[in-house]
């Protein structure tokens, strides 16, 4: 038996068929176990799992707003510390405090709160489920949207070819905070992702994991390809898997031979406006990036 069987994320949620965010939640809880408190900001994962009076969560869970998950998690963690110390609460159990926010709630509107929480050294794990746009509001671009991807606010027009800026490198910005653990992951590599969650939870202090999570609705591909596309993002070098532990950078998965980005791009409607020349441009950009990382 490879994976723990306990299901702390219940079925019946309203995620789309083939939803990658649901896979993130399920894997995180399998890795973390039941002594976990989840903080989830506004977004797909929140909306699809908690329409009153139904919840898909079997762990204590809180949603407050869009931009403050890291601050709320800071409050939860501080309360646990104070109540353990002052009143012997929580039976001195080790409790994981995990925030799970989308790229909009993390890289954009929640960025200040995230930076504050990481800088203050709270013992929390922040997981950014990255689907590269505001999916809950109908696929608008975020700072995590990749170059030339079409979204409803970065449409492919006759003058502008989709998103005109490269993807913001949130994991590296988190690493620059000097926190003890930063990693990237992808739902297509569940062992790797769960190992990183477990490792993060074993470390005292602030931790950050950015997990790539293909989105059938936002990226435009048939639902059965969620895992396949995530795998291609990694195999092409578009989304490298690494961890930075106490400042030490380590690639955790190195494709034996990187696949051409074209294979990944041609599977998704958000890139269908791209010419072979455009794809070449992206290929060169990815080659440069991979060179820097030793991929």
């Amino acid at each position: 038996m490879q994976f723990p069987r306990e299901e702390l994320f219940a079925p019946g949620h309203r995620g789309c068929a083939g939803c990658g965010a649901a896979i993130v939640a399920r894997l995180v809880l399998k890795a973390a176990g039941k002594d976990t408190i989840c903080v989830v900001p506004t977004g797909c994962l929140e909306v699809m799992t908690t329409p009153y009076p139904e919840t898909s969560w079997r762990v204590p869970w809180i949603h407050v707003a869009f931009e403050n998950a890291a601050a709320v998690a800071s409050g939860v963690e501080s309360a646990i510390k104070a109540l353990k110390r002052k009143r012997g609460k929580f039976a001195n159990k080790k409790i994981n405090v995990i925030a799970i926010g989308g790229d909009g709630g993390t890289a954009d509107i929640g960025f200040q709160a995230l930076s504050g929480a990481m800088e203050r050294g709270h013992n929390i794990l922040y997981i950014m489920y990255d689907n590269e746009a505001y999916m809950n509001t109908g696929i608008q671009r975020s700072s995590s949207t990749p170059f030339m991807a079409a979204t409803t606010t970065s449409p492919a027009g006759s003058k502008i070819k989709g998103e005109d800026r490269p993807k913001k490198d949130v994991a590296m910005i988190m690493a620059a905070h000097g926190i003890p653990y930063v990693a990237t992951a992808c739902i297509s590599y569940p062992e790797d992702f769960m190992r990183k969650v477990k490792k993060a939870l074993s470390i005292e202090g602030p931790k950050f994991i950015q997990v790539l999570q293909p989105c059938t609705t936002g990226w435009g591909y048939p639902p059965h390809k969620t895992i396949e596309i995530g795998r291609l993002a990694v195999e092409t070098g578009i989304f490298p898997l690494y961890e930075i532990e106490n400042g030490e950078f380590r690639i955790t998965y190195k494709p034996s031979k990187r696949k051409p980005v074209k294979e990944y791009i041609r599977m998704q409607k958000r890139y269908r406006h791209l010419t072979d020349e455009d794809i070449e441009r992206i290929q060169r950009y990815i080659d440069e990036k991979c060179k820097l990382l030793g991929l």
Partner: peptide
């Protein structure tokens, strides 16, 4: 919020 009594606060 307590793992011994998992409740959902702040739902839709």
């Amino acid at each position: 919020l307590d793992p011994d009594r998992p409740i959902t606060q702040g739902p839709v």
